[in-house]
Write a protein that binds this DNA or RNA. Structure first.
Lengths: 265, 265
DNA sequence: CCTGTCCGTTTACGGCGTAAACGAGCGGGC
DNA sequence: GCCCGCTCGTTTACGCCGTAAACGGACAGG
């Protein structure tokens, strides 16, 4: 029942698989540790939303009282930080031979494309967690969501500098790229969340209410079917390629007119 | 002490002025109504952050008990929705003769530029409120933050359609534009918040800690001074103009090869 | 003067994050 | 065998949260 409305499958939208030997979350193999807690928190947010996550309820989902968690996690805020770290970390270890392996790439464009799709896969796999990735205060002021780890930023800058970008151009590319990713992915998961939250509270005939609302807005009323369509994958691709073209132009300008300062220096 | 590091002033960064006859927030002119409450909430968030906003504390800032607020606001969530609405609404009534007046414009590019700078001015004036604008579930699934009002989306689509954009192109432009705005502005206010939160907890010699952290990351260490620089205004402008160029290309392609479907249809 | 209607206060309840005391189970030294 | 200390989940408790419900004073109209 996934993406049957699109004629082409979305490669970033992968089925979420349970661990092969993982029992139901009601059984508890009695071993409690930080990783199990963080994974339970991720599962809980995916299933019930961030607002529903409380220490008591998270403990209950692990068959344990709330205070037991505090032996492994300093507090709720640190728990959320750990959730963000753990989700972002799946960029590397998840499906390493298939689609996204950041370390091994063919050129900086390929790297940026793989990284973008990797982050998008994460966002779509955990739409309720992604706003946390976007909004949690970063470790350093120049760590820009959703690229939330020093390793990641380091590899980004290294890849571009190795490809001939100046330090200034690489940093400017980092900023443009993170803005692009954050905007697109946050809006995509927001839309998913909005659709879900609309489904679980039908609340009378929304059809009539919508039509009366749009009476004063002719352009909205006319384009409403278009606005409802989900072209996220295609638009993501187009914006990404546009950004890559822009960066390529910057790189070639710098190579042709060497020693000249660009407009960002 | 504002932006003395930049040689050019940021036009979206305006001084926040108190109301001329507004007394201190400790005095209470005894009239309580919804608008006063919403404004007090905005001031409170600007000053103390969203997490610190509590019904009890908000009431106290108005010289009143928490329960008094419930006569004018249904609950905390609706209060936050009201805050978002009120802040976004300042797009129209604020400084109408000076910089941003959406209704009266010279061409669609001018409209998009004014709208972008208007939203940026809002984001910079209320950096702690903007994440709320970005993350609150929208009224309809196709209302994309930060353009959070039907009026706004209607005027956006109307302006572009009047300028010759097809319905599909106007909707695609709306999506690309909102993604651009959200990404850039959210990252800009996040950076402001991170800097502020770093200032109020100096926490020992952060200098030594930072240097040890960056030992394993040569590219980060080398570009660290560049990463610390704030080029937000220039980058915002450049990305905006790039987006406008892209839209202009789409528009002219559609005009030249009329009746042809574009790649988004 | 009485009475109803605003409107802010008081009281109360369940849930939250979390500090602190508690106790069951258990493995190693004597 | 015994006991000690350590690990780790539980229990209890505190203050703050959002908010339902009862309350009371001020004030206007008969």
């Amino acid at each position: 029942m996934d993406t049957t409305s699109d004629d082409t499958r979305d490669p970033d939208l992968v089925a979420v698989q349970e661990g092969p030997g993982a029992a139901s979350e009601l059984t508890r193999p009695a071993g409690l540790d930080r990783e199990r807690i963080l994974q339970a928190a991720i599962d809980f947010i995916d299933e019930s939303g961030l607002a529903a996550l409380t220490m008591r309820r998270l403990g209950a989902s692990l068959g344990v009282e709330a205070m037991a968690l505090y032996r492994y996690v300093p507090g709720r805020e640190d728990l959320l930080d750990g959730v963000v770290d753990r989700v972002v970390e799946t960029l590397w270890d998840d499906q390493d031979g298939d689609d996204v392996y950041i370390g091994d790439h063919a050129g900086w464009q390929d790297y940026l494309v793989r990284l973008a799709h990797g982050m998008r896969r994460i966002a779509l796999a955990h739409p309720a967690v992604f706003p946390l990735i976007a909004s949690r205060p970063p470790a350093a002021p120049w760590v820009r969501p959703p690229l939330r780890s020093l390793r990641l930023v380091e590899s980004f800058l290294g890849t571009l500098c190795d490809a001939g970008f100046s330090d200034q151009a690489a940093v400017a590319a980092y900023r443009a790229y993170s803005s692009f990713l954050l905007g697109h992915l946050l809006l995509e998961v927001t839309q998913i969340g909005a659709q879900v939250s609309l489904l679980d509270q039908p609340e009378g005939d929304a059809q009539a209410q919508e039509e009366t609302d749009l009476a004063d807005y002719p352009n909205l009323a006319r384009t409403e079917p278009l606005l409802g369509q989900d072209k996220s994958a295609a638009e993501f691709e187009e914006s990404l390629e546009n950004l890559l073209d822009r960066l390529e132009r910057v790189l070639h300008q710098a190579k042709n007119s060497d020693g000249e300062v660009d407009d960002l220096a």
